[in-house]
Write a protein that binds this DNA or RNA. Sequence first.
DNA 1: GTCTATAAGTAGATAGAC
DNA 2: GTCTATCTACTTATAGAC
Lengths: 200, 200
Amino acid sequence: MREDTRSRIQEIALKLFIEQGYEATSLREIAEELGVTKAALYYHFKTKEDIVASLAEMRVNEIHELLDWLRLQPRSPEVRREFLVRYAVQLESSRHQEIMRFLERNQTALRDHPTMVRTRELMLELVEEINEPGDPLPLRLRRAMALFSLHAGMWLSERDAGTREEKRGATLQVALEILDGQESDEVTVKAAMERFGAAG
Amino acid sequence: MREDTRSRIQEIALKLFIEQGYEATSLREIAEELGVTKAALYYHFKTKEDIVASLAEMRVNEIHELLDWLRLQPRSPEVRREFLVRYAVQLESSRHQEIMRFLERNQTALRDHPTMVRTRELMLELVEEINEPGDPLPLRLRRAMALFSLHAGMWLSERDAGTREEKRGATLQVALEILDGQESDEVTVKAAMERFGAAG
DNA sequence: GTCTATAAGTAGATAGAC
DNA sequence: GTCTATCTACTTATAGAC
């Protein structure tokens, strides 16, 4: 089947790109792990970059969905919290978590890649949407950091003690605390975490 | 002069490693930009990895200094704030800021490099030192995030509006807010920022 | 300290048989 | 769809002249 080999290539490439980096992973390695020759890869993907593009596109679509939703909402504290929860839920989806890891870890190598440029643009638009035009710099920065902390939590919690559930709960809690400047009451955080848990 | 060429190699290598990535930068490029041949590089550095090691070592030394200081202090809110300020001051030193950018952007490529492993270990020890053994996970995570936000602020503020002074002030302010859970009064933040400004 | 020349290997990519 | 064989263009690294 055509689609099967294609997606196996994506799967293996993604794994190796995360482990070793994009530049350090050769098509030979991908082919070997798949049990075929390099030439076979070229039937499914015209170039090495095309493999990257096919992976990064999935992420672009996800962010775009979120951005479309956000633009239909008014700018309010409630929407910002809801947005953070939605973003966290998206991060939890294991396939997209891997793709994001790949994108994060290969930022420099893929700097000028069109899908990469698009991803950065969309992320900046997200940050703009959760801020009001006249907001002071520290407030803008703090909101951006709240979003960013969901990413950071991902890698920090690899190491720390605790179950997976505890870690993702803690990460979301901290992100919400940062967003609201610690004003978020326990009830709000608890409610958000329940929604978060239900979606995982 | 021997030392002169050696440090010019480091300087150019650092620049190219940041711009293009470690793997994507060849010794030919470094040599060309320096105006010598590849062979000349090999007189100063045995391998490409040795150039990296010489760069990463500077960072290791800086973190170690901070860790040594931190271990002599009691674990208190004041010390944690003071630590954040010291860390921010270190980040401001332009040479080390570049080295850190290099390390951040090439994490995957340098994953197994000894100096890289050492850097990660030291960072984790710093995080341990600003936490008490029995602290709950969300609190631990938030403190780690405060430290991390100083890094994030570095790249976020590349884009945002405002002067360099405003940006670094805002970044430190946000980091302190995250650390204390917004409890830090204005006076404390102002005092910290003044110290920060004096060191830049 | 820097050069020329070259070794030895790998990369991404293609042509054409099956 | 996958193969073998091959091309071209690099790469890191070394030997030895100046």
